Simulated assay, not measured.
Amino acid sequence: MKRLIILAFTLGFAVTGAAYAKDTGTTRVAVDLMATPYRDAKPAGKLPSNTKVDILERHGGWMRISAQGKSGWARLHQVRAGESPEAKNTGGGLTALKNVSQTGRSGSQGIVATTGIRGLSAEELKSAKPNPKAVESMEASRTNDTTSRDFARSVGLQEKDVPFLSKE
């Protein structure tokens, strides 16, 4: 019984230690750090690509990171969580256990960067199904070229030719 209690405490400390271990990552690109997790926030510094960072916090599509004496918020897709691709360690053992407990994923990264789907939960995305009636409803709202031009003229808009951009 005493051995069982010691084993339980040992495993408990190991899992707790893994859960509170500092996450690290690497910048995928040069990053403009922001003071708060918003696009229009004040700049807080810059980090070059492939910089090893400490991940301090996550908030929506943002991560608060720290490196080279600088700290600030970066977009989720700008930081590769976990070790850099050059590292040989695949993150087994307690790291994998930590990832499963935090994200429900067993991979060494544990994070998937997804943008552009604000307001949808993971469960809603998993259970999404096509809705032909909604598509039909949208098609019914479609207008034609003549109706669009007539409306534009009625509100004072004028047609203007715009040249194509060069392919440089």
Rank of each mutant, 00 (worst) to 15 (best):
S84N: 10
K98Q: 15
V155K: 12
T147N: 05
S66Q: 15
L125I: 14
K129Y: 01
S148E: 09
L125W: 02
M63E: 11
G119L: 03
S101M: 14
T103N: 10
A18M: 00
V15T: 07
A67V: 08
R58T: 14
K133V: 02
A19H: 05
Q109C: 09
E123N: 05
G93P: 08
K52V: 15
F151E: 04
S121Q: 07
R75D: 13
T143Q: 10
K88P: 00
G107A: 06
I117M: 13
R153E: 06
K98N: 15
V155F: 03
A67W: 03
Q158R: 14
S84C: 03
N131Y: 05
G17I: 01
A35N: 00
R142K: 13
P130M: 08
E124C: 04
S71V: 14
N144A: 03
D150C: 04
P132W: 01
E57Y: 01
N89E: 13
K126I: 02
G72C: 01
R105A: 11
K167E: 09
P130S: 13
G82L: 06
D150H: 09
Q102T: 08
G12Q: 06
K126Y: 07
A21G: 12
L157V: 04
Y38P: 00
S141N: 10
I65Q: 03
K98F: 04
K70V: 04
Q158I: 10
K160H: 10
N99Y: 02
M138W: 10
N99P: 03
P43Q: 06
V162Y: 09
P37R: 05
P48K: 07
S71T: 15
K160W: 03
R149I: 09
K46M: 11
L165H: 09
A134N: 08
Y20G: 06
V15H: 00
R142I: 05
K46W: 05
G82T: 05
G110Q: 09
H77A: 15
T146D: 13
L165K: 15
L97T: 14
D40E: 12
S108H: 08
L165R: 14
V155G: 02
H59K: 12
T95W: 14
K46Y: 06
D32W: 01
T36D: 11
G116V: 00
E83C: 00
A152Q: 13
T146G: 03
G156A: 09
V135I: 11
T36Q: 15
E136R: 12
A41P: 03
A152R: 15
G104E: 14
E159W: 08
R64I: 00
V112K: 07
L94G: 03
K42D: 04
D32F: 00
G110S: 08
A134V: 07
T90L: 09
I5P: 02
P48A: 13
K88I: 11
G82K: 10
T27Q: 08
I55K: 05
T115S: 14
R142F: 05
S127K: 13
